[in-house]
């Protein structure tokens, strides 16, 4: 894949992630700040298999930054970006270095890590340890959301078997 084609493809994935983020913000599951299904993780996982972890991390981070700017506020930027960097890095590492998880497990890890990153930013911003009381709920929401998005990613990757890919899925 030549460089120009890759840039365009990455741009399309960023846009796709933004659209998914906007769509899921319309669903009122506002239990807690940050409690969402995380549909854009589907794009990130597919990106890791398709384009490799580094490109996937870049796409996820830019998407998080633009998404926070567009749909949140300036104050939402650090939460999104830190969450995206941590979760995409961990997911990239899991796919490249361990061959033991299917996209479902990867996605659960990504979702939980994303929420964990947001809690860490919140605790640092407010200098408050009490915020950790949100973590149990966010872990459960992350497992649920990650499971759903993982199944989606799994099904989509099955249909992409014949495309040139960097990594194979397990199943």
């Amino acid at each position: 894949m030549n460089k120009g084609k890759k840039v365009v493809l990455m741009g399309i994935f960023i846009a796709l992630g933004l659209v998914l983020q906007y769509m899921e913000s319309l669903i009122p599951i506002a239990v807690l700040p940050g409690g969402k299904i995380g549909l854009s993780n589907i794009v990130t996982i597919i990106n890791i298999y398709l384009l490799g972890p580094l490109n996937a991390i870049i796409i996820a981070t830019l998407r998080a930054f633009l998404g926070a700017l567009l749909f949140g506020g300036v104050s939402a930027i650090p939460y999104s970006v830190v969450g995206a960097i941590l979760s995409s890095s961990l997911m990239g590492y899991m796919i490249v270095k361990t061959e033991k998880f299917s996209p479902v497990g990867i996605s659960v890890c990504g979702a939980v890590t994303h929420n964990l990153g947001q809690i860490i930013v919140a605790m640092a911003t407010f200098m408050s340890f009490r915020i950790i009381v949100y973590l149990p709920v966010l872990i459960v929401l992350g497992v649920l959301g990650g499971f759903i998005t993982g199944i989606c990613a799994l099904k989509i990757l099955k249909h992409m078997r014949n495309l040139p890919r960097q990594y194979k899925t397990l199943t």
Binding site: V104, G105, L135, P136, I139, T171
Partner: peptide
């Protein structure tokens, strides 16, 4: 579809969440 390690991971996370809640 899901591997054994997926299931172990999910159970571990849920148990961890319960312990953290306590």
């Amino acid at each position: 579809m899901t591997t054994k390690y997926d299931r172990i991971l999910i159970i571990f996370l849920l148990v961890f969440a319960i312990i953290l809640y306590c």
